[in-house]
Structure formats: structure tokens, C-alpha cells
């Protein structure tokens, strides 16, 4: 495909721990197209943030990328020299970290922090930076009269919104957002996501959107990838994944939603626990918790295979018959 902006190929990320080498991201491949919002979902600890960090090349020891490529318009981010990397970070990507609430410097007024970020990347004078900051505050729904407050004077959700504003300020080609709206109520959340969508249509940037909020993802994302224990187990359009989840993990996840209407009943979640990342897993990582597992699931590697056009899933119980008829091979 020609319009691919970011292509992640066979990415592996390891952490050195006391218990051994933990493989937090295990051979992941996916593409993000220009102007697309790609969502990444999955259980807490499955490697979403690690993937985001690797793409922005923010992994630090004891973590390291042990294999794979992150191609940004064909150029491998993981092999950029310091100068290229700086240009990439400034002009091409911005990141809203999961710790956004805690990412602002506590002893500097937020106005100064946002203005500095703008001025570091764009040739504008102080007044222009300040008026741009006001616009951005208004965009994310924060009273511009509070520009000169310190971070601790804002609520958690307000600090998250300030970080979103900063990421948007730089008009990058790719914005990585790791749980950017965890502290926002639905009304504000929808408003901000709507505004990001509008900007995104106008400027055509791409978004990697990490969230545990599947409802929001189905609405905002074009395509969704689902991770489990460091692996990508399913990917497809938001609609396909939401309406016809193929992987048993995705199916179980979608069944775990507490409901706002209907009878109140106790839900079970997904019994069991994810595997330790320090142990190498022969078969499907989800097999011990999977209600559909058969004996081969525990022993055979499950590679991503095409299900239908643009749709991949890593599960023997789902893909086997279809692969046989369509002859599609493993993707990337």
C-alpha cells in the first residue's frame, strides 16, 4: 500500500528483570496509514505502552528493542542517528504519555511550558506563542484565564487536556496518545475526541490511540488491533472487531462490559491470569484461559492469518478453515 505512514514490522521489546528477560512486545506487525486513527486495545500489562514507547524510540534500559523495524515513510526510526531522531520527534510525531497527568513540570506555570514547546518547534515570537496557547486551551475546554496557574492547581483531567493541547500544538504527522482520556467524563471526552477528529480531517495526521475504552475506540478509530500478552491477536476495522470479534480473547473482553441498562448482575470477567512474560510460551498465550482451547492451542504457535480482506486473527479455532479455503498466507 502506498499511503502507509508508519509500518511496524516484527517488533520485539524486552525488559531485563530480576526474574529474567521479559518479552513485553513479541513480534508485532501492523501499519498505520496516512490520515488514519489506529487503536490498540488489550489487557492491562499486555504491552500497549511499550509498543508506543518503541515507536517514539523512548524505550530506556532495562528495556530494549530486541528485533524488528519501525518504518516511518520507509525510514527506520530505530536506526536514525541523533540528528534525524530529533527532527523526527519534533516535526513528525508527538506523544501524549499515559502518565500525562504527571508529565508537566510542577514548578513551572503551564503557560510557560506550552509556549516553550511551541517556540521550540515553530518560529514564532512570545506573543504569538501565547495567543496560540490560548486558542489551544479553549480547544480542549480550559478557561484561558487560568493559563498562568501551576500544574497542581488543575484537576487530573485538566492536566491530561493540557498535554493533549501540547501534542496538537506542534501539528505533527503522527500523534501517539496513550490513554489520553482516562480522567475525562464522557461529555468532555467526546467533545475533545470530536475536535481531534476534525483537526485530523483538516490536517490529515495519523493517530495511534491506546485505550481500554472499547466504546470510545469503536467510535473514534478506523482500525483496531487487539493485543494479548505482548502479541497482536486480532486486527481489523473498528466495525469488524466491534461487531464480529473473531479472537476468543476479544470476544471475552466484549462480554465483560458492565451494562447501563437491563438487570444488574455479577459479571465474571475473564477467569485466570495472563502468563509470565519471562517464560517463553509455545502455543497461544491465551490458551490457558480460553474456553475454546483444544490441546493443540497449547503447543502450536498461532500466527496472524487473514480472515477476510484487511482482517487478521491469530487463533487456530478461527482461522484454520478460512485459511484453507482462501489460501491466504500469514500477514507480514
Amino acid at each position: 500500500m502506498t499511503d502507509v505512514l508508519l509500518s511496524i514490522r516484527n517488533l520485539c521489546v524486552d525488559y531485563l528483570t530480576d526474574a529474567g528477560v521479559a518479552r513485553a512486545v513479541d513480534d508485532i506487525s501492523f501499519d498505520i496509514r496516512a490520515g488514519e486513527v489506529f487503536g490498540l486495545a488489550g489487557e492491562s500489562g499486555c504491552g500497549k505502552s511499550t509498543t508506543a514507547f518503541a515507536i517514539a524510540r523512548l524505550i530506556r534500559m532495562p528495556g530494549f528493542v530486541s528485533d524488528g523495524e519501525v518504518l516511518f515513510e520507509g525510514e527506520d526510526v530505530l536506526r536514525m542517528d541523533a540528528k534525524r531522531l530529533r527532527a523526527f520527534r519534533w516535526a513528525q510525531t508527538s506523544v501524549v504519555l499515559q502518565s500525562a497527568m504527571n508529565a508537566l513540570n510542577p514548578v513551572i506555570r503551564v503557560s510557560e511550558q506550552v509556549c516553550d514547546a511551541i517556540r521550540a518547534h515553530q518560529r514564532v515570537n512570545e506573543d504569538q506563542a501565547r495567543s496560540r496557547t490560548r486558542e489551544l486551551f479553549a480547544l480542549v475546554g480550559i478557561d484561558p484565564g487560568r493559563l498562568d496557574d501551576y500544574p497542581h492547581q488543575f484537576s487530573g483531567g485538566m492536566r491530561q487536556r493540557i498535554c493533549i493541547a501540547m501534542a496538537l500544538a506542534l501539528r505533527p504527522r503522527l500523534i501517539i496518545m496513550d490513554e489520553p482520556t482516562t480522567a475525562l467524563d464522557v461529555v468532555v471526552q467526546r467533545d475533545i475526541i470530536g475536535k481531534i477528529s476534525a483537526l485530523q480531517r483538516e490536517f490529515g495526521f495519523s493517530v495511534l490511540f491506546i485505550s481500554h475504552d472499547l466504546g470510545l475506540m469503536l467510535e473514534f478509530c478506523d482500525r483496531i488491533g487487539v493485543m494479548y500478552a505482548g502479541r497482536l491477536v486480532e486486527a481489523g476495522t473498528a466495525r469488524q472487531v466491534g461487531e464480529q470479534p473473531a479472537h476468543p480473547y476479544t470476544q471475552a473482553l466484549l462480554r465483560s462490559f458492565p451494562s447501563l441498562c437491563g438487570p444488574r448482575r455479577r459479571l465474571q470477567g475473564i477467569p485466570g491470569a495472563p502468563p509470565r512474560l519471562t517464560e517463553s510460551i509455545a502455543g497461544c498465550a491465551f490458551a490457558p484461559r480460553c474456553e475454546k482451547a483444544e490441546s493443540t492451542c497449547l503447543t502450536q504457535t498461532q500466527a496472524l492469518a487473514s480472515l477476510t480482506e484487511g482482517r487478521v486473527v491469530a487463533c487456530a479455532r478461527v482461522s484454520r478453515p478460512l485459511v484453507a479455503t482462501t489460501q491466504t498466507a500469514e500477514v507480514s
Binding site: A183, H212, L267, Q268
Partner: peptide, 21 residues
Amino acid sequence: ADEPTSMLDVSVRIGILNLLL
């Protein structure tokens, strides 16, 4: 508890809410 489960996916969140219940 101030947003104690805001970063948990639904399946883990249900486990925690059941524990708290």
C-alpha cells in the same frame, strides 16, 4: 477511591470491582 480503575481494561476492571464489592 479516586478513579481507581480508570486504566484497567474491562475484564480486569470487573475482577477489581468484584473484589471491592
